[in-house]
Simulated scan of single mutants.
Amino acid sequence: MITTLVKGGTPPEHLARVQSTLPANGHAPLKIAMVAPPYFDIPPQAYGGIEAVIADLANALVDLGHQVTVIGAGRDGTRARFWQVWEQAVPERLGEPGPEIIYATLTRRVVENLHAAGEVDVVHDHTFAGPLNAPAYDAMGLPTVVTVHGPVDSELRGYYRTLDRDLSLVAISHRQRALAPELNWVGAVHNGLRPQDWPFQREKKDYALFLGRFSPDKGAHTAVRVAHEAGLPLILAGKCAEPAEKKYFAEHVEPLLGPHDDMIGIADATLKRELLANARCLLFPVQWEEPFGMVMIEAMVCGTPVVALRAGAVPEVVEDGVSGFICDDPGQLPAALRAAVELDPAECREQVVRRFSDERMAMGYVQAYRAALAERRQPRASRGARLAVRSGRLTSAGDR
């Protein structure tokens, strides 16, 4: 049973928290309604990459002087204001259509309340069904910025095309954006994290690590073979709960495991950091268009290099020969794994501090918000004309 705490127009008492810091860039502070998925706490206690990004982004935006209201389920875990839609997160409902639709309806009511109180300038939605609320927000004069966390070389591409004129999309990598250039992108902002929250360790233990969801695309089966060929035991950690994940593990991964390998399952935040900090390297043999790959920067910030296949955003995240090795063929991975011991852990961390910090991510989103606001201020007719141009170009170049 799902219960909602959204009742009437009175916000929770702790929503009254406000920020007084002025942004260093001189622009007026923005009031941002951040719509999070309802499946995991923010930040998550274990699995939940999107929720981890939302937590760091919300905190960094607050540090920059903006007013952020996180609309979500479960506990209040950030320095932003929090509007609790459901008392508890519902991880067991992940993948069901019902919670998505109900939650989207309820979050729209929250945004309406915030708008009536003059407490929102822009809506930033991280959910799947939430973008369907964009026309209602547009009628209020609010742009909807949507982070595309999933692959656009899928049915999501048609979904976002249909909603095109109502959404301002942000890609999490340049590769993701390039796969669907006709969509209404307002920017590409790499995921980030707060480096201070992650341990750094120079001395490593003698194991390789696979950390990710158990599906063929993530390549856990390849990771086992590579680690064995390189002469290293492998620790595997990650989500293996849904029927397809269990089937894949039982048929394609478990038969390959040796006596020195270890399957942990989902690691909580503490164990995850310990595993990443101690590993000789993270194996990331993805075999799909990975939009970003959060675990790569989580490893690097701990001083652990990444050995990966060239796919998706991997070349944007890993600097080959500095923070890891990028291979074009699985047969190259064992040698790269053996060579990873020569890479400097301090340089791995520096790559994240310099390129993938929470502050850098927040500044990128502020630019996206302002771009969406500027586009929203243009006459509806001109926005529709741009849509027609994009649609015409797509029809002539891509659909025939």
Rank of each mutant, 00 (worst) to 15 (best):
G9Y: 03
T10W: 11
L15E: 15
S20K: 15
L22W: 09
A24V: 10
A28V: 13
A28F: 06
V35D: 03
A46I: 00
I50T: 06
E51P: 00
A60D: 04
T78S: 04
W83T: 08
G95L: 04
I101L: 13
A104F: 11
L106W: 11
V123I: 15
L132P: 02
A139G: 11
V145S: 07
V148M: 04
H149N: 00
T162G: 14
L169N: 01
I172V: 12
S173N: 08
L193M: 07
W198Y: 15
F200H: 10
R202A: 13
K204P: 05
D206W: 09
K218H: 03
G238D: 03
G238A: 07
E245Q: 14
P255M: 11
P259D: 13
D268L: 10
D268Y: 02
A269M: 08
L275I: 08
R280F: 13
L282F: 02
V286R: 05
V286K: 02
Q287W: 02
E290R: 13
G293P: 09
M294L: 15
V295E: 02
M296T: 08
I297E: 04
M300E: 05
G303T: 05
V307N: 00
V318F: 03
G331M: 07
P334L: 01
E342N: 13
P345Y: 05
A346P: 05
V352L: 01
V353E: 13
F356L: 04
S357H: 02
R360K: 12
A362E: 02
G364T: 02
Q378A: 11
Q378K: 14
Q378E: 15
A385G: 06
A388E: 12
R390H: 09
L394D: 10
